[in-house]
Simulated assay, not measured.
Amino acid sequence: MSFSTKIAVVVRDDLPTWQRLNVCAFLVSGVAAAVPELIGDAYEDADGTKYLAMFGQPVLVFEAAAAVLTAAHRKALDRGLPMSVFTKELFTTGNDEDNRAAVRAVPQDQLDLVGLAVHGPRNAVDKIVKGARMHP
């Protein structure tokens, strides 16, 4: 099945695995919150046990060096696409309010990005993540 839009997550390639997974989880929650129509129907197994709904399309996860991540951030901003960001400072905070304050304290061009997620037209997202490679 082909989709007209794409969800992509880019995480910095120098993070430990646990941080990459944590960053990815937080970032996709931002896409889900901003674009709820991307969420499919709830799941149910053969026994009738109910499960939460998830994205109705694939999420592509990439890794990249810091410079590529910064370039992707700039491209997403230039194209006006919705984006969630995760900065290095968020590893030191313990709640949502402090997370937002940590991002708010840093100018856009000085964010120490460790990840971002973006949703938009396939070709635009492809251009944004150019230089990143699929996460192994």
Rank of each mutant, 00 (worst) to 15 (best):
P58R: 04
F26D: 12
D13I: 01
L52V: 15
D14F: 15
V23S: 06
D78L: 06
A76R: 04
D47R: 06
V23N: 11
M83I: 11
A33V: 02
R74S: 09
W18F: 07
K6G: 08
P58W: 00
S4R: 10
A67R: 10
L15K: 00
N22P: 04
L15Q: 00
F3H: 14
V23C: 12
F26S: 12
G48K: 11
V23D: 11
A53M: 01
Q57T: 14
F3Y: 15
V28E: 14
C24L: 08
L69I: 00
G80C: 05
E63A: 09
L27T: 04
A33S: 05
M54Y: 15
D45C: 02
P82M: 12
A53E: 00
R12H: 01
R74K: 12
R20V: 05
V9M: 03
Q57H: 10
T17C: 08
R12P: 03
G48D: 09
K50I: 15
E44A: 07
I7D: 11
L38S: 03
D45H: 05
A32G: 03
V31Y: 00
K6L: 11
Y51Q: 13
V11C: 03
H73A: 03
K50M: 04
A25H: 11
G56T: 03
D47Q: 04
P82T: 14
F3L: 10
D14N: 01
A42I: 15
P16Y: 02
V9Y: 11
G48P: 10
Y43L: 13
Q57C: 08
K75L: 08
F55E: 06
A53C: 02
T5F: 05
E37M: 06
L38T: 08
I39H: 02
L21S: 09
A46N: 13
V10E: 02
V11S: 09
P16A: 07
D78I: 06
Y51L: 05
S29H: 09
T70Y: 01
L60Y: 13
T5Q: 11
V59Q: 14
Q19M: 11
F26K: 13
A53F: 00
L60S: 09
A66L: 05
P82W: 10
T70S: 06
A53N: 02
M54D: 11
L21W: 12
A32N: 04
G48C: 11
L38K: 02
H73F: 04
F26Q: 11
G30T: 07
F26A: 15
V31C: 05
I39M: 02
L15N: 01
T17R: 15
V61I: 05
L81Y: 08
C24Y: 13
Y43E: 12
A71N: 12
A76I: 03
